[in-house]
Design a protein around this nucleic acid. Structure first.
Lengths: 203, 203
DNA sequence: TTTGAAAAGCTAACCGTTAGCGCTACGGTC
DNA sequence: GACCGTAGCGCTAACGGTTAGCTTTTCAAA
């Protein structure tokens, strides 16, 4: 995981970490909106421009580990056991993510995100990027040159499941409720005409 | 539609319209990012504070008519023919929306939105609000006190269908591809245990 | 050691957005 | 018709996120 590269890259990673730590500490102490970028930079003993060299926006400071989520979804498809069906593998991964958000020290960060519309919006658009990546992974897994409509739909449904489960009273039960729906949808996409009661209406 | 109220409200509506028109004209002429708020206000012959009294943000200038979309979805559920099944009614509405975006003078505005990440993000979070409203309408239609997980899932799937169809090469065909999936998902939600191959994994 | 480049810094601004405050025109009341 | 409360609008000044332009430091390869 930690590539043992030269001192330069180590220092860069350390700076990035120092900034993320300082930001999270301040945000948790006093609230996201109440802390300015200039303050975060000062706390991390770094120039504002340096901060923006490591993070593209203030919101990104809170989601420093978002790449892991995307990789998790993509890997759940690409590196699952041979011949394991697609949707159950995704279900396992989403369940793991939901649990990860519930336990651990993640609860305060969750509250932070829910408390700011800017952060909620940022998270949503992150998840949409993840859906695109997942769609591509699914298409690749099926040997398709590019993501079809069905692949994209599946990917968005899975991301929806993640979001809805997080917001539900009982997240794990919600996963258990949504994934049969996704299973049915995916099944319908692969075996068309079975349960389709509606037809294209030309007028 | 147009309530014939006093001069005061007429003037207010006129000001709002003048601002929206000026904004759209400038944005289409020179691009969204290239036009500043102060410029829009000047073009509409209005103070910046007045502009923000009518629109909550710069992005909102482009989506002056977003309420109609939300109402369309909710009405598609609440005011459909008696005993008409839910999902086909939603399908009709989404199809109408997709067509509305494709034809008419809506194409330049579409390009405008696709060309700016700020606008795309704003639209996505609008659509999420619409999904919440739709979920509530579905729950109400079923006589439920509040939206269940399945209602929320259906609502998000429908909004996903809208977004995916818009971005597809053949939007109408995409609707025809996704809605059978939604139909199957909704069917699975209402008749559980039929096609569920995965179970909750306790560990 | 020299050198090229990546990383970090500083200053000064741009731009969306808001606060504070004053003015005017409208709508209901006497 | 005079009166008053307030909604709509304006101005100025600022705040906070973000970027451009340019210099300085730090590392690595030659």
């Amino acid at each position: 995981m930690t590539a043992p590269t030269g001192r330069r890259e180590r220092k860069k990673a350390a700076t990035r970490q120092k900034i993320a730590d300082a930001a999270l500490r301040l945000f948790l102490e006093r609230g996201y909106e109440e802390v300015g970028i200039r303050e975060v930079a000062a706390e991390a003993d770094v120039a504002v421009t340096t901060l923006f060299a490591h993070f593209p926006s203030k919101e990104a400071l809170v989601f420093a580990r978002d790449r892991d989520f995307e990789r998790g979804l993509v890997d759940a498809v690409a590196e699952r056991a041979p011949h394991e069906p697609l949707v159950p593998a995704l279900r396992r991964e989403v369940l793991a993510m939901v649990r990860h958000c519930a336990v651990e020290g993640a609860a305060p960060v969750r509250r932070l995100v829910e408390g700011s519309t800017a952060l909620r919006r940022h998270e949503e658009s992150m998840l949409l990027r993840h859906a695109d990546a997942l769609a591509a992974a699914v298409a690749d897994d099926l040997g398709l040159p590019r993501a079809t409509t069905a692949c994209r739909a599946l990917a968005r449904f899975v991301v929806d499941a993640h979001v809805l489960a997080r917001g539900a009273d009982d997240p794990e039960a919600a996963v258990g409720e949504i994934f049969p729906m996704i299973e049915a949808a995916w099944s319908a996409a692969r075996h068309p005409g079975t349960t389709d009661q509606s037809a294209t209406q030309p007028s």
